[in-house]
């Protein structure tokens, strides 16, 4: 019996000891978007190797999941930085404020293009956003020109537009949990359906219906949800030359010997075109810093200056080598200034 008590006491001491260890954290904790993850990790690694600080820990939780963890409170058990492939929402700012996280620094990292790509074994596709929406939407305007919606019956790309190849529509893309899917739906799908004036007019009269029409992807097998793993999509495209895939630009960049990006609205998904905004399906990537942790967790300021150095996020920086599309010079200067002055987040533009 005495032994049992000893064991229990030992267990209690161990647990107590761990709670103690919690009170100090000597490494930066980063969570958030899987799209920003490849870039944040490179900076974290370089930072860890070239300074005396420990390498930050980077978790890939998705933009929403990251902001949820980030907003849970102040203290070492909560992350210091969260990555997002979209801007923070006002509801999330409110949630943060409710938990005491009031001072947040917003930093834009750069841009990411979302590409439609297929195997190099077949021809390159040239498509407009309008045709893309007509090919992938669950409901499309009726063929007779009346302002009604019918279920999408297009079987081949040529059914949508005779100029396109007469090949069965087969698009592999990310599932709804993915930030890439959100961006694809908002930028490509909505960008296409806006071309119909009467649908566009709906945005003012009935916003939720407008969203449902523009954002709903067909579920009859033409659009295949291929999971979060973009490498899997790349392999499937390689095996099936008739299929197209939707994924981030960096995967196209890394697999340019196997895949070609489709021209959208006549613009090729290329580094320069995404950077200057002429490629229509691109989005900004952000990260958010908890200002209350600056100073208490060692290395945050130094990490920020590593991230915002020209050798990292500049046009010739190592992040560009990893597929990040850098911001224009003026924007980089602006966000570098924000970091210096620890500017507080303002959501006025929303």
């Amino acid at each position: 019996m005495r032994k049992t008590i000893a064991v229990a006491a030992l267990a209690a001491v161990t647990l107590g000891g761990t709670a103690e260890a919690q009170s100090a954290r000597d490494y930066i904790s980063i969570v958030g978007s899987s799209t920003v993850y490849p870039f944040a990790t490179v900076v974290a690694e370089t930072f860890g190797k070239s300074t005396e600080f420990k390498t930050p820990k980077v978790e890939s939780t998705g933009s929403g999941g990251g902001l949820k963890l980030f907003c849970e409170g102040i203290g070492v058990e909560h992350p210091d930085i969260t990555n997002a492939s979209r801007r923070i929402k006002s509801s999330e700012v409110d949630r943060c404020a409710g938990n005491g996280v009031t001072d947040i620094l917003e930093v834009k990292v750069g841009y990411d293009g979302i590409v439609l790509a297929n195997s190099r074994a077949t021809d390159r596709l040239e498509i407009s956003l309008k045709d893309l929406w007509l090919a992938l939407a669950a409901e499309v305007p009726a063929a007779d020109g009346s302002e009604t919606l019918v279920a999408n019956g297009a079987q081949t790309w040529a059914d949508v537009n005779p100029d396109l190849p007469a090949v069965k529509i087969e698009v592999l893309g990310p599932p709804p949990t993915s930030g890439t899917r959100d961006a694809f739906v908002e930028l490509a799908m909505e960008g296409g359906c806006k071309h119909f004036d009467w649908i566009k007019a709906m945005k003012k009269s009935d916003k939720s219906h407008y969203k449902a029409v523009c954002h709903t992807i067909r579920e009859d097998g033409a659009f295949i949800e291929a999971g979060e793993n973009d490498n899997l999509i790349v392999q499937k495209l390689d095996a099936n030359p008739n299929a197209y895939g939707v994924f981030g630009f960096s995967f196209l960049d890394q697999n340019s010997d196997k895949l070609q990006g489709s021209l959208v609205n006549g613009v090729e998904p290329e580094f320069e075109n995404i950077s200057d905004g002429s490629y229509p399906v691109s989005r900004a990537l952000y990260f958010y810093v908890k200002k209350a942790h600056v100073g208490s967790v060692p290395g945050i300021e130094e990490f920020l200056s590593e991230f915002s150095a020209e050798k990292a996020w500049g046009p010739d920086g190592y992040l560009a080598d990893k597929g990040l599309i850098p911001m224009p010079d003026a924007e980089r200067d602006q966000f570098r200034g924000d970091i210096m002055s620890m500017k507080n987040l303002e959501l006025a533009s929303n």
Binding site: A40, T41, E45, G48, K57
Partner: peptide
């Protein structure tokens, strides 16, 4: 529990 993370050290 956050063990799916990028950890170098």
């Amino acid at each position: 529990i956050g063990m799916v993370a990028f950890i170098v050290d």
